[in-house]
Structure formats: structure tokens, C-alpha cells
């Protein structure tokens, strides 16, 4: 937090490809700590490719991703996660796995970890579900438990892929509040969003991917559009147009 102004994730002239086909090029970016960036774009625009590159799972063709956040403080929450719903694990156990960075694989949890886990579940309003198996949760409850894991992890870089899909409105409210708190504590947060209403409530910055290029736009520029709210208006601006 002492170095708030110093950005901990930067993209320099990034060129990314999947299966030898260029997906994104000339991508510049500067993700500030404490800011929530919305990543928008049509299907196939390269959102998940970019996320893979940021997580270090995909090697860029050229350019670079400069990330000063330690690998174990980076959290990546895929879309409604490819979790096995029949997996015999309780909410508390899932949240506790987030304490990995502080003790590794071989040592056990101590009382402090459990206390922290209970606090986190209380913040997310899932204390009453602590011992419920994951398979019996609703989409919203499951999403809260997964966010609980990232809180436990004390994630400093958090990437979420459509966290509000399949989620009830109460959960949306809670998640937006929690994400804002995490950002205020200095985390860098990137969220893939489709819904303009969520974007207006959450995003400080917007990175729009379209036609192989990325464009930084102000959230206000998007939300003032009177286009139908659910869909990102791709017609606005050419691919080489300057920022709005």
C-alpha cells in the first residue's frame, strides 16, 4: 500500500497468439493497484487469452507482461469454475485452502487460520453454510465461497471471469462490496464483464478488446451510451480510433 502509485501489472506492446493465430497485438496496459479494471469484448475478442498471459500460462509472441505480484498472491477465478460439484468438500474447507501461501503444503492450519476463515465467511454471509458440501450450494453461494478462498489467499492480483453470471442479486451486492474493499486494500483487480449495469457499479477503468486490439476507455464513456445495456457496443469507434 505504501507504493500505491507504482503499478504492479503492466503490458508492454504485447502480442499474443493461440494456435499460431494472432489474437491480440500492440497491447499496452497499466493496471494500478486499488483500481478495478473491467475487461470487455465480444466472444473470441481475446479476453481469456489475455488472462492466460497475465497468469503466466501463455507465453507472448513478443512484448511482455511485467507483474511484480508474487505468483502465490495471484488469484484467477474462471467462469463458474470448472469445479467438480460432487467433490466431497465443505465450504469451510474450500475457504481454508486459500491459506496455502502462508504455510505451504506440508504444515497444518493453526487456530489463527481458522479464525480468519470464519471472519471471511461472516463477511461473505456464508457462515451458516460452513459445513455444507459444495455440491449442495447455489451458484451464488458457491461464488461467495470461491471469493472467500481468494480473500484467505490475500490475493494482490485478482482476475475474475464473469463472476456475476448465474448469481443472485444479493450475492452481486456482496461481491461488489467485497471487491471494492479488496481494491481499497491495494489489490489490483481485473474483471471480465458483460453486463453494463455491473460495469457502472464496479469498474474504475475499462479495457475494451476488439478486432485484435485493446482500447482503454473511461467507464462513463460506455455507460452514457444509450445502446441496449446488456451488450457491449462494438460499433463505437474504429479499431484505430483514439481513446474516448
Amino acid at each position: 500500500m505504501s507504493q500505491r502509485s507504482l503499478s504492479r501489472l503492466q503490458l508492454h506492446n504485447l502480442h499474443l497468439a493461440q494456435a499460431r493465430r494472432t489474437v491480440l497485438e500492440h497491447l499496452e496496459g497499466d493496471f494500478k493497484p486499488g483500481a478495478i479494471t473491467a475487461l470487455i469484448g465480444a466472444n473470441g475478442a481475446g479476453k481469456s487469452t489475455l488472462i492466460q498471459a497475465i497468469m503466466g500460462e501463455l507465453r507472448p509472441i513478443s512484448g511482455e507482461v511485467v507483474c511484480t505480484v508474487a505468483k502465490e498472491r495471484r488469484a484467477w477465478l474462471p467462469q463458474q469454475l470448472a469445479l467438480d460439484l460432487t467433490f466431497p468438500m465443505s465450504v469451510e474447507e474450500l475457504v481454508m485452502t486459500g491459506s496455502w501461501p502462508s504455510h505451504g503444503a506440508l504444515t497444518g492450519y493453526c487456530a489463527g487460520h481458522y479464525r480468519k476463515g470464519r471472519e471471511i465467511m461472516a463477511r461473505l454471509g456464508i457462515s451458516h453454510l460452513a459445513h455444507r458440501p459444495l455440491g449442495e450450494l447455489s451458484g451464488g453461494q458457491r461464488q461467495r465461497a470461491l471469493i472467500g478462498r481468494t480473500l484467505m489467499q490475500e490475493a494482490e492480483l485478482l482476475l475474475l471471469d464473469e463472476p456475476f453470471a448465474n448469481v443472485d442479486s444479493e450475492t452481486v451486492d456482496i461481491l461488489i462490496r467485497i471487491l471494492r474493499q479488496m481494491a481499497d486494500d491495494g489489490a489490483t483487480i481485473i474483471v471480465v464483464l458483460h453486463d453494463m449495469d455491473h460495469l457502472r457499479r464496479l469498474a474504475d477503468e475499462v479495457l475494451m478488446l476488439n478486432g485484435g486490439h485493446g482500447r482503454w476507455v473511461a467507464p462513463s464513456a460506455l455507460t452514457h451510451q444509450h445502446a441496449p445495456a446488456q451488450v457491449v457496443p462494438f460499433t463505437m469507434g474504429g479499431r484505430h480510433a483514439g481513446s474516448a
Binding site: 497468469m55 505468483k71 502465490e72 495471484r74 484467477w76 469445479l83 467433490f87 485452502t97 506440508l106 478462498r149
Partner: peptide, 20 residues
């Protein structure tokens, strides 16, 4: 010894890959 790592890997291999 490897129990917890095994559980985490079963549930969410991506998370484990991020952690270690």
C-alpha cells in the same frame, strides 16, 4: 504428507498450479 496438495489438485488443479 501430500494429502492436502492432493485434495486441492483434485478440486482445482489451476489453483494449485498458481500456488506452487
Amino acid at each position: 504428507v501430500v494429502f492436502r496438495a492432493l485434495v486441492v489438485e483434485c478440486l482445482d488443479p489451476l489453483f494449485l498450479r498458481g500456488q506452487s
